[in-house]
């Protein structure tokens, strides 16, 4: 039977102060993904291994980890792309680790709430007036940014976030842009204060890694650049045209 060596970073703050690595040699099949390997270890070899997962089909965004140094959704990363080489699995970079491969996502969750990722209306229209209509062209303005599954892989790949955790980060800005571009939304003013702040879009140096690693093919780098253009134009107009609206 073919086997593959999986090396996992372990960390348990209750028993050790430092993380360490542990290797497991497990049966290999061509259709296995990295998450299958971790589940095999958990179920058959070492029940103490801790990792997050849920849907196994690239929808829930729970199983993001570093695979041989690259931020990946482990349910969509096949072992055959590394076999017969070894696979090293680490927790997502740039986040505090709670245990083994489980990271503390509270910083991202706070930032996500800050940008108000929902449709904001200054006044809701009554139900009897019917639904808010939207044309296919209006939908296309934001559709790709709505595919984000909050997996935080872009944060792990972003060197700016790695240097400075006060940076709002790719997914939160992409989602702010998604709602700003929605014809039903009227919350641009509220989001502009957050994304237009010093820690918002301006810290991005357009490395573009967020877009490269996104498993859902969202383009956060484009969202950030478009927001920069939009807010810069608005900034200069507000000085030249203070009486406008």
């Amino acid at each position: 039977m073919s086997t593959i060596k999986i090396t996992v970073t372990r960390y348990n703050p209750e028993t050790s102060s430092e993380p360490f690595t542990q290797s497991y040699t497990i049966p290999y099949k061509e259709d296995m993904v990295v998450l299958d390997a971790l589940n095999y270890i958990k179920n058959h070899v070492d029940g103490t291994l801790t990792h997050r997962w849920s849907c196994r089909m690239g929808v829930c965004g729970s199983c993001g980890m570093m695979v041989n140094g690259d931020a990946k959704l482990t349910c969509a990363t096949f072992l055959r792309d590394y076999y017969p080489g070894e696979v090293q699995v680490d927790p997502l970079a740039h986040f505090p680790v709670i245990r083994d491969l489980v990271i503390d996502m509270s910083d991202f969750m706070d930032k996500l709430l800050e940008i108000k990722p929902w449709i904001i209306r200054s006044e809701e229209k009554p139900l009897e007036e019917g639904e808010y209509l939207q044309s296919p062209d209006e939908l296309n303005l934001y559709k790709q940014f709505s595919m984000c599954i909050n997996c935080m892989i872009c944060y792990s790949a972003c060197p700016v976030y790695g240097h400075d955790q006060s940076f709002l980060g790719p997914a939160a800005i992409a989602l702010a842009h998604r709602y700003n571009m929605d014809s039903r939304d009227e919350g641009q003013d509220q989001r502009a204060e957050i994304i237009g702040s010093h820690e918002g879009i301006w810290e991005c140096t357009f490395v573009g890694e967020c877009t490269r690693v996104c498993p859902e093919h969202v383009d956060p780098a484009a969202a950030i650049q478009r927001s920069k253009v939009q807010l810069t134009k608005e900034y200069f107009l507000s000085w030249m045209w203070p009486w406008g609206n």
Partner: peptide
């Protein structure tokens, strides 16, 4: 037009971009 961006970043980014 209300000033929604309260940093000087747009000036530097605007000059950078131009």
């Amino acid at each position: 037009m209300a000033v929604r961006v309260k940093t000087t970043d747009p000036i530097w980014w605007g000059l950078f971009s131009a």
